[in-house]
Design a protein around this nucleic acid. Structure first.
Lengths: 264, 264
DNA sequence: CGGGCAATTGAAATACATCAAGGCGTGTGG
DNA sequence: CCACACGCCTTGATGTATTTCAATTGCCCG
C-alpha cells in the first residue's frame, strides 16, 4: 500500500537508565543555576523555593535523582510506569509515538529545561517513547513531592499552567504543520523553531548551533521520508539558506528560510 | 506550488453570540442532567457540588449563561478575549486553526459535554477558531468562578487533570494520524472515533448516528482534499463498509472498517 | 579492517492534489 | 410556481509532491 516505515530501527533492549546518584536539589544549586535553561524551567522555581526556606514543606527540600543515558538509548517506554517527573538537564532527546507496524511520529525534541510532558506531573505512564539523541542527563523529581509543592506554592502552579498552554500551542502548530504544510515549509519551520528554542537557552553562537539530530529524526518529526528530507535539505543548501557541516548547522539566510517556512 | 486551500469559504462577519439568558446552574438541573453528556462532563460535577451545599462557596451556585448559535456561524475567533469557559450542551462544532493563506486544520469536533479546550480554564484567548456545524447551544461559565471552584473542590481538579490527559492522548493520536497514516486510515479512523464518542453519549441507535458534518469537514480534519475524501468514502460504500443517507451514517461492517483504519 | 549507520543521488511508482464539469437539493426572490 | 443561485456531492482526466526502490559513498567505532 505504500506505508512509510519507521526510519530508525530500534535495536535496543528494554533497559531502564539507573539512578546514578541521589542528591537534594539545593546541594546542586550551583550546577543547576548554570544550566542553559535555568530560568526557563521548573528547576529555577523549585530551587528558589527550597532556598527561601520559610514554611512547612520547604524545610524538606525536593529530592531529585540525576540520571544519565547514552546517545541513542531509549529513556522510557510508552507504557512504562514511573513515580518520577523527569526534566532534561543536558543533551537532546525525542518524544514519539509509534504505530504497531513501525511507523513513527516524533512529537517533540526535548532540550535542557524541558519536562517530558507537562502532563507527566499527573500521569504515571505517558504513552510515549522517549529516546536520547545525544548523551542525556536529566533530573527525576518524585511526583508526589512535586505535586505537594504544586499545591503549596501558587507560583509553581502558575508556572505549570503557563507551560501547559505553551505546550498546547505547540500541539496546535504541529497539527497544522503535519496536516496542511508542504515538505519545505515543515522542514524550514522545524529548523527555525529549534533555532529559537536553542537561542532562548543561550545555546547558539551567532547563527550557528550544534545540531546533533539526524535526517531521519527530521523525517520522523515532519511526517516525511528520510530520502525526501535529504533532497529538500540539499535544495536549501543549494539556495544558500543553510549550511550543515560536522553536526553544526548555520543559518545563512534567515529571511529566506522564514519565507520558505511561510511562517506566522 | 500546490497548496491545498481551505475547503470552506468563510463568509460570516464577526458576530458574537449573545447571551440569551442567564441562569444559575441549579435551576437548570433537570435540563442538564438529561443532557447526552451529563455524566461525562464537568457539568455534572459542578451541579452536584452546587447541590451538596455544605461549605463556603457552594452557597453561591455557579452562574452560567446559556448561548445559542445557528449552524455554520463562527462561535469564537482565534484571538478573541473571553472571561468565560464554554461547554457544549447540544449540537456539533469544530475547533480549528488556519494559516494566513487560508489553509485550515480542524483540531477536533466538539460534542455535547466538551469544553472548547481544557486549557480554556486558564487562558483568555485560545488561538483557535470555533465554528458551529449544526445549531449549537452551549453554557458559558465565568472563568474566575470556575477557577475558584477548582481550588475549592479537589474532585473538580482531579476531573480536570483527567480530561487534560485525555486531551493530550487525542493530540498524540492526531499527530500520528496526520503525519504517518494514509488517507483511508485517517478517514476510517475518524469515523470510528466519532462513533465511539457518540455512543458514549447515547447518541447512537444501533450502528447508525445522525452525521451532520460535511465532507469538507472531514477533509479539514484529516488534512486531505474534499475531492479525495469523497473518493475514499465512495470506496468505503462500494466495499460495503458504511452507508450515508440523509445526514445519517450507518456502519455496515465495523470489523472491516476497523481493519482499514489499522487501529491500535 | 569490517560492519553498521548515515547521507546522497537517480529512476520509477503512487498517493494525493488540482482542474473541470455536471447533478442534486434547498432556500429565495420574482 | 418557476427561475435561479448556492452549497454540497460526484466523477473523470491530468499533474505533482512525495514515496519507494536501489545503489554508492563516506564515516565512525570496535
Amino acid at each position: 500500500m505504500g506505508i512509510p516505515l519507521s526510519t530508525h530501527q530500534q535495536s535496543v533492549s528494554y533497559d531502564l537508565a539507573p539512578a546514578e546518584y541521589r542528591i537534594d536539589a539545593t546541594s546542586e544549586h550551583k550546577k543547576c543555576s548554570s544550566c542553559f535553561a535555568y530560568e526557563l524551567s521548573l528547576c529555577a522555581v523549585i530551587l528558589k523555593n527550597a532556598e527561601s526556606n520559610v514554611n512547612g514543606i520547604a524545610g524538606k527540600p525536593l529530592v531529585a535523582s540525576v540520571r544519565k543515558v547514552p546517545a541513542r538509548r531509549t529513556i522510557s517506554h510508552p507504557n512504562e510506569w514511573s513515580d518520577f517527573v523527569p526534566i532534561i538537564c543536558e543533551g537532546w532527546a525525542t518524544t514519539s509515538i509509534a504505530l504497531p507496524d513501525g511507523r513513527r511520529q516524533i512529537l517533540s525534541f526535548l532540550l535542557p529545561g524541558d519536562m517530558f510532558s507537562t502532563a507527566s506531573l499527573f500521569e504515571y505512564a505517558s504513552g510515549r517513547m522517549v529516546e536520547a539523541v545525544t548523551d542525556v542527563t536529566y533530573r527525576a523529581y518524585k511526583r508526589s513531592e512535586l505535586q505537594a509543592y504544586l499545591y503549596e506554592y501558587p507560583i509553581v502552579l502558575e508556572m505549570l499552567t503557563k507551560s501547559w498552554i505553551e505546550e498546547k500551542k505547540r500541539y496546535d502548530q504541529l497539527a497544522i504543520d503535519l496536516g496542511r504544510r508542504t515538505a519545505s515549509e515543515r522542514i524550514a519551520g522545524i529548523i527555525l523553531d529549534l533555532m529559537n528554542r536553542l537561542s532562548k537557552r543561550g545555546m547558539t553562537q551567532d547563527q550557528t548551533v550544534v545540531f546533533p539530530i539526524r535526517q531521519h529524526h527530521i523525517a520522523d518529526a515532519t511526517g516525511l521520508t528520510p530520502v525526501h528530507v535529504n533532497k529538500i535539505l540539499s535544495e536549501f543548501r543549494r539556495n544558500g539558506l543553510i549550511e550543515i557541516t560536522n553536526r553544526q548547522l548555520t543559518i545563512l539566510d534567515r529571511a529566506g528560510l522564514h519565507h520558505v517556512a511561510n511562517m506566522r
